[in-house]
Design a protein around this nucleic acid. Structure first.
Length: 226
DNA sequence: AACCAGGAATGTA
DNA sequence: TACATTCATGGT
């Protein structure tokens, strides 16, 4: 099948035209809160995470020291609505413990690292993989590291621009080469992709009035295998 | 009532 | 490297 060219600049323009600026990630003022949210939102809806964040705030558990010292059971009960609550308790504590061990709990010292080293450090934390690391880099640390998620892959696949089985690195490199390394741009672009996915057809078999120039009439099966 | 949600770790071949 | 399994609640 012939593929439409991978025009990542044009795609951003189309999304921005359709939806406008997103000003994403509520609570971005507090980097630590963003990190907690990034871990909790793994494979879960943001609405569940948002309520849990408020519960943690009320419990005064939105600092690395408080989470590090908290009883597992207490933390588990508070974050239960986000699912995988035992695993996520371990993940949150792993981050807080390593942050204290390596940087005395000082996020600004951690964020002072060059992008590549900071990303490597994040990936060394149990529970932080590629996507969570990049979300933290963009929305908490202010570094231009493009977030690739399932929506991004699905959208480009449906546009017919990629096969769908490309590696995370390959996709991230494609964005990095096509776009200027601008944090705000990366933050907005990823937000637009997620917004498009949630309001249109990336989570449905088809939809009407899709603002993007591709047909929403497709079969769910076979889309990922090119 | 199956199916999915702003993934990652672990184990197997 | 590539694929399967586990983790688990809440909304549709």
């Amino acid at each position: 099948m012939n593929r439409t060219p991978l025009d990542l600049i044009g795609l951003h323009e189309a999304l921005l035209q359709a939806y406008g600026p997103q000003d994403w990630w509520p609570g971005r003022e507090d980097p630590f809160e963003v990190i907690v949210g990034a871990i909790l939102t793994q494979r879960t809806t943001w609405t569940n995470v948002a309520s849990v964040i408020e519960a943690l705030r009320s419990a005064e558990l939105l600092t690395f020291e408080a989470i590090r010292m908290a009883e597992d059971r207490r933390l588990e009960d508070l974050i239960r609505p986000t699912g995988f609550f035992r695993a996520k308790t371990i993940k949150l504590k792993a981050f807080c413990s390593l942050l204290r061990a390596d940087y005395d709990g000082d996020l600004s010292r951690l964020f002072a690292l060059p992008l590549a080293e900071l990303r490597t450090w994040l990936l060394s934390v149990h529970g932080i993989g590629d996507e969570t690391a990049d979300a933290i880099l963009v929305y908490a640390a202010g570094k231009a590291s493009f977030v690739i998620d399932a929506y991004t892959r699905r959208l480009l696949t449906r546009l017919g621009s990629i096969a769908g089985n490309e590696s995370y690195q390959w996709l991230q490199d494609a964005f990095a080469e096509a776009l200027p390394a601008d944090v705000s741009l990366f933050a907005e672009y990823h937000a637009l992709i997620v917004h498009h996915a949630k309001t249109h057809c990336l989570s449905r078999p088809r939809c009407d009035g899709c603002p993007l120039a591709y047909s929403c009439d497709f079969a769910k099966q076979g889309e990922e295998s090119g």
